[in-house]
Computed example of a mutant assay.
Amino acid sequence: MTATEDLIASAEAHSAHNYHPLPVVVASARGAWMTDVEGRRYLDMLAGYSALNFGHGNPRLIEAATEQLGRVTLTSRAFHHDRFAEFCARLARLCGKEMVLPMNTGAEAVETAVKTARKWGYRVKGVPGGRARIVVAANNFHGRTTTIVSFSTDPEARADYGPYTPGFDIVPFGDLGALRDAVTEDTVAVLIEPVQGEAGVLVPPPGYLPGVRELTRERGVLFVADEIQSGLGRTGRTFACEHEDVVPDVYLLGKALGGGVVPVSAVVADADVLGVFRPGEHGSTFGGNPLACAVGLEVVAMLETGEFQQRATELGEHLHAELGLLAGSGKVVEVRGRGLWAGVDIDPSHGTGREISEKLMERGVLVKDTHGSTIRIAPPLVISKEDLDWGLDQLRAVLG
């Protein structure tokens, strides 16, 4: 038995089977490349579902984390620490907002947004107690907590976890008419992903996001944009909403905010929204800890230069042009996405998304499938054009 086989067998024996990873065991990584326990190198074309926008082992982020590790890593929010104020102020400024509520994971940010919207609805909008409702989109992916799966339409994420949390209305993604019909006097928020990642990198039709913004303003409802996967440079802008000049009331951030080093998430909004909280009403022992703030500050500093957004724009145009040629050849049914992010629907005659992912792995490229014959491509934003082209060459070879 090889080292890879031994480690996979041990993982299968001693860990819950809530994931079905590709049969590769990573031992080290730098930039856009990972190396397994056998010494074989792989081009990372997934980037931890956008958590690794700045690449593996980014020197600036590792330096920031290392320096902070030698000082203090955790105080809890029972005390102030010297990185917290600057992190909140700089992140708020990046978002064009006033306040930040830091958490750890993306799901925690979404849960926090649900609580924020409901409390805002009762305290500010005046919705009668216990009646607040939130409108969401079908095929969404906001996390896997019991409340979040209550408004999922994915049977794998939802089945067998009831009873489900009430208070949510589901409408088709991209359908403004259905959204307008769903909003009532009891609606406190519309929660959507500007680009639906897990669903296959689905981009809404032009005018949809501006329409959501106009409708929510008109009806006195919060527009909450889940930019956990789409934000922080992935689509070629700091936020995916910017592609249509839309500014939501609330940004939900995560994944890349921790630089692939530590889990960092945040809810970012103005004081008239986040100001509804009082001490003791919501919290997190690790949320906003010194190590997280140090790494998050460096992430913000890197995004403030615009360098990574520009790379995602330029390389993204090249990625989509090359994938478009594959679509024209009939080997690919459809390509969707923005920036350095694509959902590629493979012609089923060439295999399932899982089978294509396994064949790419054999050729040294790591991607992940979703929903049948779709694969997602989202390399670190630091990938070189030469490496990107090499990865695309492997996809062409797999498709024949």
Results as ranks from 00 to 15, higher is better:
residue 369 D to L: 02
residue 318 H to Y: 14
residue 281 E to Y: 07
residue 268 V to D: 06
residue 284 S to L: 08
residue 296 G to I: 01
residue 295 V to I: 10
residue 242 E to I: 01
residue 248 P to W: 05
residue 252 L to I: 11
residue 278 R to N: 05
residue 290 P to T: 08
residue 284 S to A: 12
residue 276 V to Q: 03
residue 251 Y to N: 12
residue 269 A to T: 06
residue 237 R to D: 03
residue 274 L to T: 13
residue 255 K to W: 10
residue 291 L to C: 01
residue 326 L to C: 01
residue 282 H to G: 10
residue 334 E to I: 05
residue 264 V to Y: 11
residue 363 R to L: 14
residue 318 H to V: 15
residue 350 H to Y: 15
residue 362 E to H: 11
residue 255 K to T: 06
residue 334 E to K: 15
residue 254 G to Q: 08
residue 284 S to C: 12
residue 259 G to P: 02
residue 260 G to M: 08
residue 356 I to N: 00
residue 247 V to C: 00
residue 287 G to L: 07
residue 318 H to A: 14
residue 359 K to V: 04
residue 238 T to K: 00
residue 303 L to C: 04
residue 248 P to K: 06
residue 363 R to S: 12
residue 298 E to D: 02
residue 303 L to Y: 07
residue 264 V to M: 13
residue 344 V to N: 09
residue 317 E to K: 12
residue 236 G to D: 03
residue 303 L to V: 11
residue 328 G to R: 14
residue 266 A to W: 04
residue 237 R to P: 00
residue 284 S to Y: 06
residue 319 L to R: 04
residue 344 V to D: 09
residue 281 E to S: 11
residue 277 F to D: 08
residue 361 M to S: 10
residue 246 V to C: 08
residue 259 G to T: 03
residue 346 I to N: 07
residue 259 G to W: 01
residue 348 P to D: 03
residue 245 D to I: 03
residue 286 F to E: 08
residue 316 G to E: 05
residue 254 G to C: 15
residue 349 S to A: 15
residue 279 P to I: 11
residue 313 T to A: 14
residue 253 L to K: 02
residue 292 A to V: 03
residue 358 E to K: 13
residue 356 I to M: 08
residue 309 Q to R: 05
residue 265 S to G: 15
residue 318 H to N: 09
residue 309 Q to D: 13
residue 343 G to E: 05
residue 264 V to W: 01
residue 345 D to S: 15
residue 348 P to V: 00
residue 334 E to C: 09
